[in-house]
Design a protein around this nucleic acid. Structure first.
Lengths: 213, 213, 213, 213
DNA sequence: AATGAATGAGAGTTCATTCAT
DNA sequence: GATGAATGAACTCTCATTCAT
């Protein structure tokens, strides 16, 4: 993405993968080094300390994440809010699908009450709030969406957006639904579109032709 | 709850609170001992090892959680599935509201790929799947719910149910929504009922009189 | 001395010996553990951290050191200051002779500009100053000592008192003078008594019968 | 001093200052590099390794130090040994005054029992012994000094010479005596001259006109 | 029922040092 | 002449855990 050294990128990917499956605290620097095929010291050379790796994860994730939201907002003037919301949902799911390791990890780690989370996330969350709130409230004002409490609905939406990636193991092992595959993500996306139509706009239901049990 | 010794309960509560805010791996036995006001060895006396504490958290959480689901299923023969689903949602939210520390922690930790999670959770999740799937599919067969892919919808529902507790800090700091307070949980509950009515049953929208911004 | 556990004492002695010869920063916890025949963790169990060991050294050294000075002061009313000063010199040399490792280390480490030195030593040095200044100035007021600038003279005296232990290796290898042996300490003591008589009191020189080259 | 490159000198000064306040082992190459404003590798380029820096300190210090002593010896044939001794004392104090960081550091580090100290210092100390012993014993043979054990007295003298610089912090904070200032060094020098007159030669005391408390 | 002493393994981090450029 | 990338070894310190009491 950025022109970091190849070594730095290698380390970052290794860290990501391990953080994802074992958690931040549950992953040791030595494990990362081994997975990245470098010496432990090299990690410190590039990321200063373990927190540096965490920060990089957060920054990387939110950069594009917020970009997607911002682009959606910028199109609000010319288009139907419900269509834009669907498009944003589409792109966010797609982004998380493409970066499912990062997404899961960030989504989980963010719920831990550490100093670094507070420091790093505050700005991001403020921006995200602005974008989502604008999106919902513009739709309501335009008469496209029902009158809903935006905060509550955003939390609801975020829950739905994250769940597939947060508990992909659960989905896979319990429901045989694999969100690493396009097919299931598309299925999920369709339901969220239904959510917009039925729950938010309260229009007619889209007839479901292909339905998986 | 059960007639454990007061010491054991004290330890469990201390562990819970710390696991909740710092994560399982991020919490040390010493910290727990200090918070509980006992010697480290005492924890081992009661819980065998650190995993024992984790297991206790899972067991405690799912005992009542599954109870709620089971009771719902048992009433399915005599009542409207949509009403039962709403009632189950109501009780699950209420349960998590009463045990928000436990809920948040379990919900987060479950997404970590450790041996102990796999071992402990498999049975619980199988049961949960059976209950939720039955609930949704009975409703569909009875013509009360739209035709929906049950797995996808359950994952969607679970996301919405967990989100308030998983990221309570986010809700509080970013949206000023405090799910430790009845008011906000009731607001949230109302929206999930709307979700059942509008999204699942596709009936008319319930007019919203009281709406928070 | 105090009723610490035998293990703690063992560790302290090992640390002392290593600090003495290799310096504080130059000594590793592992080396100490190995020398003491305990596990590294045990050191932390007793002394919290490495600084804890340093502090213990300072405290141990100055406890008796200041005791000697205090006793001297208490006798000032009834006796000739020059005799008391000689006695104090005698006892200080003797104390350092008995604890030469500790003395050397403390004396050297004290000259390092670290936070812990400042914190720990301030009180001790204030007390020491009070005692030594009182000793010198009482003698001057009594007309026993020449009129001398007390600060300057105390620094001079301290230099003479420490040198044998500070650079015992120098003394041994360069001059074949071994201050671990009574004989040489007694020789040195005699010269310091001469210093009191000739330099401070300016009386006749004591005729030297036994002189080593 | 010598025509080394400016960079080398910059590094040396930075190292000196850090060694002085934190000790040799307590100072890292990175700290030195940072303080000198160069890359770590540059230090290795100029000094080979960390020991190289230490050696340079020793060499630099003793070069002029021994020069002073040698010049004193060379004048012994034509002048009163007591006057020469006083002059040597004067010049040594002055030299240490001008290079107080180096002096303090060398004086302290020399008491550490490391291979490099032994290797580097042996020659210097042998020379120093020869000069000081000759000085004292010539004076004694000439009947100018009392009959004293030269080794003991030299150690005594060295203690007095070093103390002001070894523990300059002690002097400053405890006694408000700042040996970085001419005034106090002159005061101290005067007392060492008294020491020569009264203790070594046993002549009348020099009347003290200006005396600081 | 509960504790203090003690441990081995491993944590994150820093060390002095090298080498290609 | 000077540097940035990379390393292996060692650092201090904390981890979960055991065992005798």
């Amino acid at each position: 993405m950025n022109n970091q050294s190849a070594t730095k990128e290698k380390i970052f990917q290794a860290a990501l993968s391990l953080f994802n499956s074992k958690g931040f605290s549950g992953t040791s620097m030595r494990e990362i080094a081994k997975a990245a095929g470098v010496n432990v010291s090299t990690i410190f050379y590039y990321f200063d300390d373990k927190k540096g790796l965490l920060k990089e994860c957060f920054v990387t994730f939110f950069e594009e994440y917020l970009n997607i939201l911002e682009k959606g907002i910028n199109q609000l003037e010319n288009a139907d809010p419900s269509i834009i919301l669907k498009d944003v949902i589409h792109q966010l799911l797609d982004y998380q699908y493409r970066n499912y390791q990062l997404s899961r990890f960030v989504c989980r780690e963010v719920s831990i009450d550490s100093q670094i989370v507070r420091e790093t996330m505050t700005t991001y969350f403020r921006k995200e709030r602005f974008f989502l709130q604008t999106l919902i409230e513009t739709g309501t004002e335009a008469g496209v969406f029902r009158k809903v409490p935006s905060g509550i609905v955003v939390i609801q939406l975020k829950g739905m957006l994250n769940q597939p990636f947060l508990n992909s193991i659960y989905s896979a092992e319990v429901w045989n639904i694999y969100f690493q595959e396009r097919y299931y993500i598309d299925q999920y996306k369709k339901q969220l579109e239904n959510w917009v139509d039925l729950y938010l706009c309260n229009t007619k239901a889209i007839p479901l032709e292909e339905v998986i049990s």
